[in-house]
Each structure stands twice: as structure tokens, then as C-alpha cells.
């Protein structure tokens, strides 16, 4: 009887764990295994043939100019966007450290961008960036400056997308760093003030070092999210002009869903996965490193 009860108790936990486990494996583990497998084949949905080609997909893709361009663009976007967001987010958290009337309303407004759909945001910025009717070029013309092709100039387009990302996600960095600041006991600041430390000194020598893990954490989350950049490219530039805003995700999308070269799309996915793994390991090491 006791044993039967025990078995019943155990099976209950297996039963409630199984659905989530199965769904997760079905949606992630199986597709990932498929990518690794397919990346060694010339496999196209159009001709519906599958030929083993070894590492050929990888060696070809890595030598292609478009892929190299996508990789560089992704890295530039990731680096510039995530660092700027964290720096601005930290600055905002310092600004909002003080009490003032309307602080609560202001904070709520500040987090609007991260709640609104990326597509809505892109639609609005699309009107801002518009060459003829956009507000940016209107201001430039008013100051007698030459209008800029915000989304059509090869040198500018990627940075225009970065600006949208900064507008959308700086609030996220702000939110987490502000939470981190809130957990610092007030005595620490009081003690520093009694010891005669000035505002700037307190920020640099006390607050920032305490917030180090929070800042690293946000930087990691933003790096990993910006690395997958797709929606904004899709909505704002479609990868152009002249591939100036191609990214890794967009490359995979084109290979897979425009040309139906599943083998090549899989190989590009595997390369991207290695990139993500590298980034994640780098951050995990620096996050763990500080605890020792």
C-alpha cells in the first residue's frame, strides 16, 4: 500500500512535467537537430532533392560577400545599439534617482516604447525618415542643410535602424538598472556623503561598481536580442540599400523563405548559433567571474 501510494505520487510529477517537456523538445530540440543535419546537404524545396555535400554549404557561405556583409552589419548593430542603450539607460536611472513631482507618470511614459509592437514603432519612424515628407528632412531643410536619405543612403541606413532600436530598448536598460539602484541600501550613500564624497565620486566609485552585475546582465540581454535583428530590417529597409542593412537573421530568412535553399539556410543558422553561443559564454564567464 505504501509503495503504491509512493508510485502514485511519483507518477503525478512525471505527468505534470511531461507536457511542457514534450512541447519544448518538439519546438526547439527537434528543429535544432534538423538544422545541424540539413546543413550538410544540398537541399532545396523547389527541386525537392537532397544530396550530401559535406561542409560545402559552410565553405561557400563563409566566402560569400553577402554573408560577410551580413555578419559585419550584425556585429556593428549589436555593438553600437546595445552599448548605447546600456549607457543611456544607466544615465536615465541616475536622472530618475531623485524624487520629483510626476516621477511615477514620467517613469510609466518612459517604458512605453518597450511595450509597443516593433511594427508600430517602425511605421512611425518610417514616416520620420521619409525623404520628402519626413520630419527629419523637414528640419534639415529648414536649417538650409541637404536632406539625408535616412533609409536609402548606404552609409546611413544601418544607423537609422540602430536609432530606432535605441529609442525602443533604452527604457528596458533603464528599468533593470533602476531596479538595481533601488536595492542599494541608503546607508551606503549617507556614509559616503558624511565622508565628504561628491555626487560624481559617489556615482563612479560606489554606485556603478555595485551595479556592475546588473549592467552586465542588461548588456548581455541586449546583445543577444540585437544579434537576432530581423523585424526592423524587414519593415524599414528590406535589407537594402545595396545590402547595406543585411543581417544574419535576414540572410537566413532570404535563403529559407525566399529561395527555399533549406540546406544553405541551415548552414547559415548553424554559424549564427555558434555566434550566439560564443556571446553567451563570454557573458556567463564575466558574470560568474565576479562572484569568485
Amino acid at each position: 500500500m505504501r509503495n503504491r501510494e509512493r508510485a502514485h505520487y511519483n507518477s503525478f510529477f512525471y505527468l505534470i512535467f511531461a507536457p511542457a517537456l514534450l512541447v519544448t523538445l518538439f519546438l526547439t530540440a527537434y528543429p535544432m537537430a534538423t538544422i545541424f543535419y540539413d546543413s550538410f546537404f544540398r537541399y532545396s524545396l523547389v527541386s525537392n532533392t537532397r544530396t550530401f555535400v559535406g561542409f560545402q554549404n559552410f565553405s561557400r557561405i563563409l566566402r560569400e560577400e553577402l554573408f560577410q556583409r551580413s555578419l559585419v552589419n550584425t556585429l556593428v548593430f549589436t555593438l553600437v545599439a546595445s552599448i548605447t542603450e546600456v549607457v543611456l539607460g544607466t544615465a536615465l536611472a541616475f536622472l530618475f534617482k531623485r524624487e520629483f513631482r510626476g516621477k511615477r507618470v514620467a517613469s510609466l511614459i518612459v517604458i512605453f516604447p518597450m511595450i509597443i509592437s516593433t511594427m508600430v514603432i517602425c511605421a512611425v519612424w518610417q514616416t520620420f525618415y521619409h525623404y520628402e515628407i519626413g520630419i527629419f528632412n523637414y528640419i534639415l531643410r529648414k536649417w538650409n542643410l541637404a536632406p539625408v536619405g535616412w533609409l536609402t543612403d548606404q552609409r546611413v541606413a544601418l544607423f537609422s535602424i540602430i536609432l530606432v532600436d535605441i529609442w525602443q530598448w533604452t527604457p528596458f536598460a533603464f528599468l533593470i538598472i533602476q531596479a538595481g539602484m533601488g536595492s542599494i541600501p541608503a546607508e551606503i550613500w549617507e556614509a559616503a556623503q558624511i565622508d565628504g564624497a561628491r555626487g560624481g565620486q559617489i556615482a563612479m566609485k560606489i554606485t556603478l561598481p555595485i551595479l556592475r552585475s546588473q549592467i552586465l546582465m542588461v548588456l548581455m540581454l541586449r546583445t543577444l536580442d540585437t544579434f537576432r535583428l530581423f523585424d526592423k530590417v524587414y519593415a524599414l529597409t528590406g535589407g537594402g540599400p545595396a545590402n547595406a542593412t543585411q543581417t544574419l537573421s535576414f540572410f537566413i530568412y532570404r535563403e529559407g523563405f525566399k529561395f527555399f535553399n533549406f540546406g544553405r539556410a541551415s548552414a547559415a543558422s548553424v554559424i549564427t548559433l555558434f555566434g550566439v553561443a560564443f556571446l553567451a559564454l563570454f557573458y556567463v564567464r564575466s558574470l560568474l567571474g565576479e562572484e569568485d
Binding site: T28, R228, I252, F257, F262, A265, S269, L273
Partner: peptide, 13 residues
Amino acid sequence: ILPPIVLAVPLFT
């Protein structure tokens, strides 16, 4: 942390 596009191709099939 995975870029979801990576899963999209095999899941589509």
C-alpha cells in the same frame, strides 16, 4: 537566447 529565425525553417517543414 536563440534567434527564432533559426527555428523557423525546420518548424515550417
